[in-house]
Design a protein around this nucleic acid. Sequence first.
DNA 1: ACCTGAACACCGTTCAAGT
DNA 2: ACCTGAACACCGTTCAAGT
Lengths: 174, 174
Amino acid sequence: MPTPERTSHTAIVDAGRDLLEESGPNGLTMQAVAQRVGVRAPSLYKRVRDRDALIAAVVAATVDDLAHRLEASDRSLEALVRTYRAFAHERPEGFRLMFAGAAPQELLERAGGTIVASAGALAGEAHALDAARLVTAWATGFLQMELAGAFRLGGDIDVAFDYGLAALRRGLAS
Amino acid sequence: MPTPERTSHTAIVDAGRDLLEESGPNGLTMQAVAQRVGVRAPSLYKRVRDRDALIAAVVAATVDDLAHRLEASDRSLEALVRTYRAFAHERPEGFRLMFAGAAPQELLERAGGTIVASAGALAGEAHALDAARLVTAWATGFLQMELAGAFRLGGDIDVAFDYGLAALRRGLAS
DNA sequence: ACCTGAACACCGTTCAAGT
DNA sequence: ACCTGAACACCGTTCAAGT
């Protein structure tokens, strides 16, 4: 006898994303997710293979979210980089998790793709890919260090960010 | 009646570091560490408060190791950055863990200190700190993405690394 | 003093039994 | 067809009892 579905794959992933931001990776337990979607833990295994698969789905949803925002910007280098930073500030745990394990193929194909075009315009087509990697690496590392609280020698972090972006522009336009 | 000590704090941390590289963060269990140092899990609590404290000690030891290597190099920007990359390749899990939570104060005070001097020579004393942050952010992000396998649009990764370092030099020397 | 077995709480996962 | 309680394995942690 069929039973109405009491939750869904997307509801589970969304609950996972929220839980991650609220209580960190250790708070992302099957029981906590189940409780949040109104079901018992064993029921989750009808929708996700196991906890690792759920985490991978959370990462994929995060990357997809980020890619949409980058695509919705005006795609200038400035806008892309500031959108990226705003995203990392809004979902710090999700941002970290994107680089914790193996990143999904989408990452560079979509998120990265928007930057390749913009960076290529500055550095020339021949160096578009290398230039995009320079910018994304800098932004990613800056945010990772900012979130980890690794900038503690004083100075203004926003100033350091602007300085970095300006220096990258100079370096690329040569 | 006194009992001879069967292990030590440093033996525990060393075992933790090795275990981390061999089987990832999930493999870093109290039981596995205990077995490796030849003791039962409860005995570890004589030396470390709990698993989180052990992980923090592993991170601290990793940062200390890195700082020593940077200090032992010729401290040119080139040498610092290549030493950093070699370290990340040698201990990828330890490198990741350094940015997973709150980084220890040492990170920028020692490891970062070596770069501030070198970057200041290029960009001028007034921008030494911002310049150092640009370089470390780039290198950190590049390695994080390289380790996560996020560079998958083709192209040579070593070439991208060299390109980035050269572009940073140009951007800083202005 | 340090070490251990036993015990407890908690989590991931499976599965037979419910509807 | 989906949901659940019960059960199991595994891990972190505490503690009384050993030496």
